[in-house]
Computed example of a mutant assay.
Amino acid sequence: MSIPEGAQKATVAAGCFWGVEHMYRKQFANNGLIDARVGYIGGDATNPSYRAVCSGRTGHAEALQVVYDPEKVSYRTLLEFFYKMHDPTTPNSQGPDVGPQYRSAIFFHTPEQEQIAKDVTDKVNKQWWKGKVVTEIVPAGQWWDAEAYHQLYLDKNPMGYECPSHFLRKFPPLQDDSRPESQL
């Protein structure tokens, strides 16, 4: 995936990548999203296939990689959406999808992204998910695009499988806990 000048990349795993891609495209299509691809990251096999990743033996997660315009949408906003659109409290599963390929993870590309991911995750864990978040925050390694038929899968197959845990939860805005209590 090429990245236009000034654009940035974000990579997340939140269960079955079809629903994750579909939700991000719907939410950010006219709000900073330049492109989105589904693929595999976080494992040790070279050029993994869907079948190999689904076996749970490659170590890869089904993931989404987005290219976005940081002038229109912030990395923080993309991560807050990530935590609202899946259940980050279930290790290696989302709904009926079970295995390490369905884990919740943020794959950061820069030290700044790492810090933002840790900050957002801490706030989300305290304020929304009440101490239950199991999301991994790890450096982005080698990315592998998923096969062509997986890209835009739910657009091409509107009645295709969508994980029941992928829906937008209604949480209040995150509070900035760096301000004194009297200002919250």
Rank of each mutant, 00 (worst) to 15 (best):
A148W: 15
L64V: 02
A7K: 10
Y153S: 02
Q127W: 11
S93I: 03
R169T: 00
V12C: 09
Y102V: 08
V73Y: 11
A13H: 10
E112R: 12
N125F: 10
K132R: 14
Q175K: 09
R51P: 09
G32A: 01
Y68R: 03
R25A: 06
F17V: 01
G15K: 06
N47F: 09
S165I: 00
E147M: 02
Y149S: 06
L79H: 07
E136V: 00
H22C: 07
Q65W: 12
Y24Q: 04
Q65P: 13
T46G: 09
D122I: 00
G32M: 07
C16Q: 06
T110G: 11
F17M: 04
I3N: 12
G160V: 03
V12N: 12
P91E: 14
G39N: 00
A117T: 02
L64P: 07
T58S: 03
P111H: 05
A45I: 06
D97T: 00
E162D: 08
Q142K: 15
S104T: 10
S2Q: 15
G56K: 08
V53T: 00
D177M: 04
A36N: 07
K126I: 00
A7F: 12
A7H: 15
R57Q: 13
K72I: 02
K118C: 11
E80A: 01
N31W: 05
V53F: 04
K170R: 13
M85I: 07
L64E: 06
A36M: 09
M1T: 13
I137M: 13
H60Q: 07
A29F: 07
Q151A: 01
A10F: 10
A105L: 02
S178M: 01
S74V: 06
F108G: 05
P173T: 03
H22F: 14
C54M: 12
Y83C: 01
K123D: 15
L64M: 09
A148T: 09
V124W: 05
Q151V: 00
I106D: 08
T58N: 05
T135K: 14
T11K: 10
P111K: 08
